[in-house]
Write a protein that binds this DNA or RNA. Structure first.
Lengths: 324, 324
DNA sequence: TTGTATGCGTTATCAC
DNA sequence: GTGATAACGCATACAA
């Protein structure tokens, strides 16, 4: 491995001169600088990251922590993070799993974006206390070193519920999400508020875990105890797709967009592949990721930042029938 | 930041004793060791990754490089990589984009798994010459420090073509892939061989880029010049889905699984969401990733490794009609 | 068993 | 303008 020491020897100068030349310090004359650069290139020199990091106390690497790697879901989100970071000379690495948590306290990364329920609040607060900068996308956490960029889940759930109610649905089913998901809890909270305001509605809450399987199960359950036209709000699109499949595959004759109206949440790519297209709650995942990166870089730069919110909107579609 | 120096001071011992104790070196007595560990824990000590890496010349981090983050495609692949690595005490980080290439030559990672056409062969060979260990999933590259774990694309393409031919299709369309994709080139090579062996077939090759849009375009083209029942082999599932959508959306009356038979490649999750289910070429993405990690770790351990091949199989389905 | 000393490759502060 | 030299935090050969 070739180091600045080797270059210094070959160039007949000291290592500090090499360091200056390579880092563009104007103290060194253009001639020596050029000569040193030429030699460095010729020797295929590449600086050692660990050494520089040890000295400069920064790696210019940001870590994004996800619960798992599955899913079309994360593509745009990560792309948004990456583009902002790259523009500022930072790199993004994506991590998953308990083992990788070490990267943060060991200071291999300059900050982290968290969308991973495998982190406990305590763990994150501990890191924050150590001076690490964090942006959380999946929880509320108040600490000067932690910034929140959260989805406006309540507004989304309200949009979905109002859509079903305003199109004349009185019998409703809600397919819930896992209790360890912040988004699921927030969406469910808004649903319950809406239901409280509308005692005339006949509503049933079914369990769900944000995966397709639970949507299918919910779909079968609804068909079994079918009592006539109904509206279903699945707290995410995955489950809505599962429910759609279960209903379509049944021999009940009941069809989504006719007797059964269906709304999801997230606007994943799959929503376009079912007939009729799935009504859902939409937001820019790219923007979510980009915002997270921006906030993190601001914190690293020492700026004060406020929590941010990602706004959502309703995508109307044929999966909801107007019964008025 | 608390370092072993601080611990040493507080414990009244030297830094080497602290280092020994923390690393479980049996030279230090159980009592002092326990005392030092207690103090370390109390002080919330966490070793500095950069310092250790600089000294030990390893990070126990492996990088997976992908062309982009989009896609359900990568979930299982990355999961396979991660589980194998974690079991051996390594961590996986996922990277994308030109900027992140630096992580390898700067020695932030102990090795890399490449599925990213943004790397040129020359660049990879340069890294290999520097002593970095690589596993490539998307090209043939012969170098002692580079191992190949490649899909058996030829077998897959043969399976797909034979399936169409054996079910009695004489008019064939092939939707090709991008020329910068190794998999696409290999699949196409096998297709051409098959066509050479069957001069009685009437075959047309259409352009494609592995994205849905090009599949749709190909679908529309086929419908425009429709000459009766035909079989279509799309070199990947994404394009097959696009083609399926274009045909389904048209008012031609032609249906997939009837007049038009369709086969894809990859067996992505989406293949189950169309009616009829898409016939395709299947392989275990999990196993592909796991194998890549295993090979890389073997190389890092200094073992000799042979190139590996991931075998594929045919998924028959209603999207291909038996015309015999 | 514990301590001393050195070096990993870099940056940066001082002299000269 | 250039060159010694001292850190950064850790691991380890060797001395005590």
């Amino acid at each position: 491995m070739v180091s600045i020491k080797d270059i210094a020897r070959k160039a007949g100068v000291s290592i500090s001169t090499v360091s200056y030349a390579l880092n563009g310090n104007p103290k060194v004359t253009p001639e020596t600088s050029a000569r040193i650069r030429a030699i460095a290139k010729e020797m295929n020199y590449i600086p050692n990251g660990a050494a520089r990091q040890l000295k400069k106390r920064e790696s210019r690497i940001i870590g994004a922590f996800l619960t798992d790697f599955t899913g079309a879901f994360y593509g745009d989100l990560l792309q948004g993070m990456k583009e902002v970071l790259n523009r500022k000379g930072y790199d993004l690495i994506v991590c998953s799993g308990l083992q990788s948590h070490r990267l943060l306290p060991e200071r291999m990364i300059d900050g982290a974006i968290i969308l991973d329920s495998a982190f406990s609040d305590e763990e994150l607060l501990d890191y924050a206390d150590r001076g690490h900068r964090l942006v959380v996308l999946d929880r509320e956490l108040n600490h000067p070193a932690v910034n929140q960029v959260l989805l406006d889940n309540k507004a989304g759930a309200n949009l979905a519920m109002d859509y079903l109610i305003e199109t004349g649905h009185r019998r409703l089913y809600i397919v819930a999400g896992p209790s360890d998901s912040f988004d699921a809890r927030q969406r469910m909270g808004a649903v319950r508020q809406t239901l409280d305001r509308h005692p005339e509605l006949e509503a049933t809450v079914l369990e769900g875990d944000f995966n397709q399987g639970s949507g299918e199960a919910a779909g079968r359950l609804i068909l079994e105890q079918w009592q006539g036209p109904a509206g279903v709000f699945c707290l995410n699109d995955e489950m809505a797709i599962g429910l759609f499949n279960a209903v379509s595959a049944s021999d009940s004759g009941i069809r989504v967009g006719e007797e059964l109206s269906l709304v999801g949440f997230d606007n994943i790519a799959l929503t376009r592949y079912i007939q009729p297209r799935l009504a859902t709650i939409e937001y820019s995942k790219y923007r979510w990721g980009a915002m997270a990166s921006e906030q993190l870089l601001r914190m690293i730069a020492g700026e004060e930042v406020e929590h941010e919110r990602i706004y959502v909107s309703l995508v109307e579609s044929g999966s909801v029938k107007d019964r008025r």
